[in-house]
């Protein structure tokens, strides 16, 4: 019986192994990239909302503090969506005829809640707590991104576990003084712009982060990277 494959095909046989490896690798890399893509994570994607609320206008334009509306963020796990009444603190006077705000007025008249779409939605098996992050010196925009530059709100980060762990493994790279947590303009210390804590001027983040880790009694990395810290 004659050989089915001529010996000149040996090269192709070897090459096909390589091609299979490359293709397999590419498929794996593609899958990994796909899993981290906004299609899966919703990063950077806005959702339709009852009112096109602009954080940019209210935060950067008017200078309203995060906590004016998200009043429970320092003391509870959940940063509340404000009740319609909070909107009406100002909008009973301003833009009272704006068609865009009709859903807000309707909600105020009828007592029915506005139904907002949740953007930063963690899986339910993650027991995230806002208050502890704020009280340990994690800034709002460290996770939520430049909210003061978002005409429409979107989720700024992937919110995947590897992203959480970036900070949980090295909290000192991200911490800032508590009184700067809500400062959207805060920048990590540099030679030109040191950050002063307890009368010590820090010029680099690492030194500042270490000092704050001690000052705010952060648990050690083993503790805050253990499964049951976030997954109870």
């Amino acid at each position: 019986m004659a050989q089915i494959f001529h010996r000149s095909l040996n090269l192709y046989t070897k090459a096909s192994i390589l091609v299979a490896l490359v293709l397999g690798g590419a498929a794996f890399a593609g899958l990994m990239a796909f899993e981290r893509s906004p299609y899966i994570t919703n990063q950077g994607i806005t959702k339709p909302q009852p009112v096109p609320f602009s954080h940019q206008h209210h935060v950067a334009g008017l200078g309203i503090d995060c906590r004016y509306c998200h009043a429970s963020v320092e003391t509870s796990a959940y940063a509340n969506i404000p009740p319609t009444k909070t909107c009406f603190n100002c909008h009973s006077q301003i833009w009272t005829n704006a068609a865009m705000l009709e859903p807000v007025r309707e909600s105020y008249r009828s007592g029915k809640s506005l139904v907002w779409s949740k953007l930063n939605d963690l899986p339910d098996y993650v027991y995230f707590n806002h208050s502890i992050h704020i009280n340990k010196g994690v800034g709002c925009n460290t996770c939520h991104g430049p909210v003061d530059k978002m005409p429409l709100m979107y989720q700024a980060n992937t919110l995947q576990m590897e992203w959480c762990l970036e900070c949980h493994r090295n909290p000192e790279k991200f911490l800032r003084p508590r009184n700067q947590v809500f400062n959207m303009e805060y920048k990590q210390p540099t030679e030109e712009l040191p950050v002063t804590v307890d009368n010590v001027a820090y010029t680099e983040q690492e030194a500042l982060g270490k000092a704050l880790t001690a000052k705010y009694h952060l648990r050690n990395v083993t503790d805050i990277t253990s499964c049951s810290t976030c997954h109870r």
Binding site: G63, N183, V195
Partner: peptide
């Protein structure tokens, strides 16, 4: 202030 002083309710870290 660094750059233009924003109207924000939170103070910008003053430049030393």
């Amino acid at each position: 202030f660094e750059g233009d002083a924003p109207s924000g309710a939170t103070l910008v870290t003053p430049a030393p």
